[in-house]
Design a protein around this nucleic acid. Structure first.
Lengths: 153, 153
DNA sequence: TAAACTTTGTTGATCTGTCAAACATTTTAG
DNA sequence: CTAAAATGTTTGACAGATCAACAAAGTTTA
């Protein structure tokens, strides 16, 4: 009845564990200090990199790994808070852009240092530089192997 | 405006990505084939290892990284489906046990081979044995470093 | 041109979890 | 022994995501 876990199963289980732990810790401090979820934060960050023209909502959804409705609801919230605004597209009336507002940028600047610090403290306590690098590589392969799953061209 | 991500930030971001990807894939096939979420599955698995006397609900919550109310709701669903039952504790009337039923065990046996296979296929496609081992170790350190956070005894 | 398909985005119903509070039962201290 | 603290569980309100269905705009094709 007590079977030995396979390496893959063991790796997955630790991935789930590490994710739950890190996410709980980082998210709770981000919410407590700034009222932002990790997705909120990620969204503001992506928009800050996108500059003035903002990003199409669907691209945002892909980058944040959210469904189309997920992005609609996330942005609804951020719009209500005044952190992002909406832009239209002249060439294609279907698409709308999400654009970081001034308050949104301010919020990001307020939250970022502490959050980044949390991340580095938390991960830095567990892994040295080389391990961190290795971990990032291995995790990268895990998601990459997904994209290449387009068997027939 | 375009700052370079620190190694820790990069590692976290890949962890989130890999988690989202794997979780989406594995979960959707588990739900489609057997009507179980990954937590449902994990719960049945833990209970199957616990044997006849089952597990205290709170221990289950810790192992699955769920809040106490989360476990209540998860078990409510599994009880409604007849997959787990409830047991009382003679020594301590506060605690109740969750116990795998026969149908629960049958469900687990039905779902396990395919799920394990999914996991091994998916992870095996991305990493070789040595990488898998390394990844498991590094992820292990990430959660372990959590437990040892009890500064003053 | 018009019919059919694809892409982008929203909405309603629903699912699964959280938190805060309530409650019952032990355990511990005075 | 009794009052206070700790432990285990459940409940109500709600957050954040999903899916299915839809609407609207663009693209293809015949």
């Amino acid at each position: 009845m007590k079977e030995k876990a396979s390496p893959a199963t063991e790796a997955l289980s630790r991935l789930l564990g590490a994710h739950a732990t890190l996410t709980r810790e980082l998210s709770s401090s981000l919410v407590a200090k700034h009222g932002l979820t990790m997705n909120d934060y990620g969204c503001l960050l992506l928009l800050s990199r996108a500059g003035e023209q903002g990003m199409r909502r669907i691209d945002l959804a892909n980058d944040l790994q959210l469904s189309p409705s997920g992005i609609t609801r996330l942005l609804d919230r951020l719009e209500d808070q005044g952190l992002v605004g909406k832009g239209e597209c002249k060439e294609d009336a279907r698409v709308s852009y999400a654009i970081l507002t001034e308050p949104g940028l301010a919020k990001l600047r307020e939250a970022a240092p502490g959050h980044v610090d949390d991340i580095e403290t938390r991960l830095g306590a567990a892994l040295d530089d080389e391990e961190m690098q290795t971990l990032a590589e291995l995790l990268g392969k895990l998601s990459d192997s997904d994209e290449k799953c387009t068997p027939d061209e």
